[in-house]
Every structure is written in structure tokens, then in C-alpha cells.
Amino acid sequence: MEVLQFLFFGMFALVIVISALGAIFCRNIIHSIVSLVITFLSVSGIFILLNADFLAISQIIIYAVGITILLVFSLMFTTTKDDNKLWLAFAPRTILAFVVAGTLFILLMFNITNKFTDFNINPKSFITKAPKESTIELLKKQGTTPIIGKQLLTKYVLPFEILSILLLGVIIGAAVIAKKDTNEKNRASESA
């Protein structure tokens, strides 16, 4: 059972890393968006391994469908055929990017493994505890959705409401910003 879990984790992790690299290094922007969708789907697989079924489904609904459609539609408005030449930045910036990402990775590993000394599967720097038997039984019966729903409407109700106001503002703001300026168009037609 545990071997199978590890196998699935390795598979998903490999697909995530390869497709995330593809999303960045593909020349054609449509190819990189398709690669991004593969990343999102495999991340939802990782969520299922982490006992987060509600998150996995939300990941597919919000990221793999919603955000991708937004990206593709904005691509239709903006990209032209010769944008494929916009592949990588100029050499100084590319080198800087590799240096920054590498340094960050080394720093993160330094912290995770506690100065490269602690290679346990549950690092001592973090407090971990196995879930209770009753919790596992509950999760098998009803999933995490009731737990998250209860938390959202009791303890975290204020952030939840603020989030809804934020989303309303974003809807209005996005519509206003992306709208073509009608005054400008009238002026252009008058001068022509």
C-alpha cells in the first residue's frame, strides 16, 4: 500500500516538474498553456494523496478550467504570429534568473533538511503528528468538505466575507479596465 502511494507520488511529481518546465520553456505560447493544464491536473492528484479531496476538485474547476479559459481568451485578443520570438530574455537576465532560482532552491533545501543534517522523512524542524483513527474513519465516510465548510462559516467567516467583497471588486474592476475607451475611439474617427 505504502509502496503504491510512493509510486503514485513519484509519478505525479515527475509529471509536475516536467510540465512546469515545459510551461516556461515552450516557444509557442499555446503549447505552454496546455503544459500548464497538465501541471494543474497533476497537482490535483497530489492533493488527493494528501487527503484533500475538496481541494483537488476545486483545483480542477478553478485552475484547470477557469484560469485556462481566461488565459486562452486573452491570448486571442493580444498575441500575434511573430510573438514566438519572445522566447527567453536577453543573456544577462537569463543568467540572473538561473542564479536566483538556484540560490533560492539551495536555501530552501538548507532549511528543510535543517542545515543538511536531518534527512528523516518527517523533519524535526516541523511538528508533525499522525491523524487520529476517528478522523480517518470520518474522512472515509464524508471527506473533508464538511470540515472545511464548518471552518469557513465559523472561525474564518470574516476572511470569507472580505474575500467575497474582493471578488466583487475584481469583477467590476476587470470589466472597467479591459473595456475599450469609447471617447478615444470617437476622437480617432473624428480626426480621420
Binding site: 505504502e2 502511494q5 507520488f9 497530489i46 537576465r93 532560482a101 522523512i121 523533519p123
Partner: peptide, 26 residues
Amino acid sequence: ELGLVHYLILVAILFCIGILGLIISR
């Protein structure tokens, strides 16, 4: 056995790929 550190390493790699793409792309 699958532990916390595997997920943390995966996240570190993915985050660094994101940072790389943020700076590298035009």
C-alpha cells in the same frame, strides 16, 4: 514510506521553477 519531506522538496522545486519563469520570460 511517504513523508512530509518529499512534499517539501517537490514544492521547493516547483517554486524555484516558478521564480525562474518569472524572471526569464519576455
